[in-house]
Design a protein around this nucleic acid. Structure first.
Length: 422
RNA sequence: GUGGGUGUAGCUCAGUUGGUUAGAGCGCCAGGUUGUGGCCUUGGAGGUCGCGGGUUCAAAUCUCGUCACUCACCCCA
């Protein structure tokens, strides 16, 4: 690209959506809307720009370095939202005394994060957010996951395609205490466990040692990762704890929802964000080639942390980038083409009025009509109609105007039918 | 932030030891066919070979720098 030439590519990490890209995006949004609606979630939305102050207070430390921030003309420090939860918490806190709980809210929003790009990760994406606020029952966790799996199912993705890995930070806390690891070491331990699977076991133990754990404790922490089931966890604990019983309830509910084949206990799920306190989960494709499809968990201190009255909840975030890759890998062709049903063309200026009035009357019948803007040769018109994806095409010449009828051509079958000119 | 890879037409890519006017397929436009698309056929438009310096009689080709894109790691939604 010459220095004088304008680059035509979108800024790094940003996406353009050409007409041929919209059917997939619209299908994904439609699946999200429908699944959320079926589960009784109400849609909300918020402004894209937030104050930097709110985001710093609420987001995790790593995220802060990735915020797209700027100063406006009045020196206000603002930012494009990197995630939806701070905005949601702000909106709920603003009306906390007027709202009836539990809230079940959802949104489909664009979020921005300045970070290095890799497969499945852009600097901008759309995500479905499902939140239930002010409800302690584990059924809240079940409902958000049920809604997300329903959306995947309506896009043709079932138990063979993905699995939701579930654990609990509360359970992990119980286990760490059982191993005599003091509570002030837990955050660092969570962080190290979250990294495992991404970095080597040696690097993880190194991380734990530098966080201040002694060598024997490091060994026992790593041994936790051998836990393959809730029963094994209970054996180590000696007796079920509230956290393990809660997980047990969760899996029973999932079974009664008919979703047992889509969930699995996985002690290694921790999640990076600091605000989760209970059950946490991430959905992966079965081959585990891609990043998490969706993820979330219970956050019981969210509103209190930003200065509202304490109220717990469950949140789930579900991005469109990994989902699109999954659908592409599966070669699924979803979405309806965003083109007109019927093309109307004409041979010369003399037939233009007839073409206009025909188009208007077809549109009255709610038919999507693409009216040619200038005369064309028949060959050009039909070729264009075909490539545009129209279902049918009507070409008006002098004879048609004289006879008062036109031929409607079905472009799939090639058949033509007579129709009166309105 | 670390380490690879790649930059030639709108797209996917050829381009020989450096050597005439830089090619193909697809796509686009038009003609063959002035009342009917897909097939066929003919033609056309479209490139300062990412950018800048160097070596050379001669650079898409060699060299140095730079920028961009991309993948893996790191990190994370």
């Amino acid at each position: 690209m010459g220095t004088n030439k304008q680059s035509f590519s979108a800024p790094r990490g940003m996406r353009d959506f050409y007409p041929e890209d919209m059917p997939l995006r619209n299908a994904v949004f439609a699946a999200w809307h429908t699944a959320a609606g079926q589960h009784g979630f109400q849609q909300y939305d918020a402004c894209v720009v937030e104050t930097l102050d709110l985001l710093k207070k609420k987001s995790g430390d790593e995220i802060i370095g990735q915020i797209y921030d700027f100063t406006d003309k009045s020196d206000r420090e603002l930012a494009l939202r990197p995630e939806m939860t701070p905005s949601l918490a702000r909106m709920v806190a603003a009306r906390q005394n007027a709202l009836r709980f539990p809230l079940k809210w959802y949104s489909i929003v664009q979020c921005f994060r300045y970070e290095r790009m890799s497969k499945g990760r852009k600097r901008e994406h759309f995500q479905l957010n499902l939140d239930i606020i002010g409800e302690n029952s584990v059924l809240a966790e079940v409902e958000v996951i049920s809604a997300a799996t329903r959306a995947l199912e309506s896009l043709g993705l079932g138990p063979d395609d993905f699995c939701v890995h579930v654990s609990s930070r509360a359970l992990l806390t119980d286990l760490l205490l059982k191993l005599d690891i003091p509570a002030d070491h837990h955050p660092a331990t969570f962080l190290a466990l979250d990294k495992l699977g991404k970095i080597s076991k040696e690097a993880t133990s190194e991380l734990l040692l530098t966080s201040g754990l002694d060598r024997s404790h490091v060994e026992s922490v790593l041994s936790l990762l051998a836990i393959k089931s809730l029963d094994e966890a209970n054996n180590i604990l000696g007796a079920p704890t509230p956290a393990s019983m809660r997980l047990s309830d969760f899996f029973q509910f999932m079974e009664s929802y008919g979703l047992s084949d889509r969930v699995a206990f996985d002690i290694s799920i921790v999640r990076g964000l600091a605000y989760y306190t209970g059950i946490v989960f991430e959905a992966f494709d079965r081959s585990k080639e891609l990043r998490a499809i969706f993820g979330g968990g219970r956050y019981d201190n969210l509103l209190g942390d930003i200065g509202g009255n304490p109220a717990g909840g469950v949140g789930l975030g579900f991005g469109d980038v990994v989902l699109a890759e999954l659908l592409t890998n599966k070669n699924s062709s979803i979405g309806v083409p965003n083109t007109a049903d019927t093309g109307v063309g004409y041979m010369s200026e003399e037939q233009k009025p007839a073409a206009i009035s025909l188009s208007l009357s077809l549109r009255q019948e709610n038919i999507l009509v693409d009216l040619a803007l200038h005369p064309e040769k028949a060959k050009t018109f039909f070729s264009r109609a075909d490539r545009s994806g129209f279902q049918q095409a009507i070409f008006i010449g002098p004879d048609d105007v004289a006879s008062g009828t036109v031929r409607v051509k079905n472009l799939k079958t090639g058949e033509q039918q007579q129709m009166d000119l309105a």
